[in-house]
Design a protein around this nucleic acid. Structure first.
Lengths: 190, 190
DNA sequence: GTCTATATAGCGATAGAC
DNA sequence: GTCTATCGCTATATAGAC
């Protein structure tokens, strides 16, 4: 038994990233303290530094975790038969979390916004989250034979991100659903 | 001479709001300290509290300043002859600041994003910034005879906000210009 | 009204016992 | 590997001289 005392709980290192991921989303990067992260992960504060030497290193782990999740989701979407079906399935991925978007905004958009203000390598790592989405979308539009695929991809992800911001601002999930439905029709019309 | 020593400089209270407005935009709300605000305004730190009892009160003043400016700009746009011209002029207001958007994001969007995470009255005050833009846009679309004016207004402001986020993320002003041109054509097509 | 000096609290990070 | 205790710093905010 190399695991910790209480049987099958995920090891501390993993618990810390999960806790950080959730808190960074709910409260924002700047407002979240190591004490809060440690408390939710049920790890003593001082012990955090055994797993992550600095706060930034922990934030880095969260970005990596988000990046892996994005690639995982996009990989699943790639199994769908047509580019249009894939693009529409992407938008559905957001509406599935509509309630959380209304409460806390887009998990990716918020993170990226804050990292944009950061003068560290984290900023560029955050940008990669968006690049992944835009590039994947661009490939779909290109498969549809659009030469302006890059522009369309930028428009699509932009619209979703902006809709998430306003939805969060007005705390009204229905706004998000309506806008994403609109984007679905737009994709169909292409 | 009731003014300060160096003749015609704006009074300190005003200098503080201006300094705070700029720094909150450039660095974000959370990262900006009173010391930085005071320094840029050329006011001693301790003296800030003579003009604003708390930090939140100063942030409140910045929101009010932004709100006034929005109403001022929208008031000027109202002088244009057609709703379409007014809507397109609104989008131009953003591209005029394209370089800054690429560097720091949208001055309103960033502020609103951060205030959304705030558990204070400032959050609702921030929402009013967006409401002002959406409501004004909705009136224009309604004048165009659109019954889905509310939806279209939401889409327009969403797209601009999302485009600003991605433009800031990729630090490429041309992305913003291209997307706003696209929105201009969309307005024309309505 | 204006300024300096300082109180107070909370943060990230470290040292070292176990 | 795990934990407690605490350092050092910086932030907001206050007290009080001028």
């Amino acid at each position: 038994m190399t695991d910790s005392a209480t049987a099958s709980r995920p090891p501390k290192r993993e618990r810390l990233v999960e806790s950080a991921r959730d808190l960074l989303y709910e409260q924002g990067v700047q407002r979240t303290t190591l004490a809060q992260i440690a408390e939710r992960a049920d790890v003593p504060v001082g012990n955090v530094y055994y797993y992550y030497k600095t706060r930034d290193e922990l934030v880095h782990a969260v970005i990596e975790s988000r990046l892996e999740r994005i690639r995982e989701v996009l990989g699943e979407l790639d199994r769908r038969s047509s580019p249009k079906a894939r693009l529409k399935a992407l938008t559905s991925a957001w509406t599935d979390e509509g309630a959380q978007v209304a409460e806390h905004g887009c998990p990716l958009g918020g993170l990226v916004y804050e990292l944009n203000k950061d003068h560290s390598p984290l900023s560029e790592e955050g940008a990669q989250l968006m690049r992944e989405l835009v590039d994947w979308s661009e490939r779909q539009f290109r498969e549809l034979g659009r030469r302006d695929a890059a522009t369309l991809a930028f428009s699509l992800i932009s619209s979703i991100q902006g809709a998430a911001l306003l939805t969060n601002t007005f705390h009204d999930e229905s706004l998000f659903r309506r806008e994403v439905r609109r984007l679905g029709r737009w994709i169909d019309s292409i």
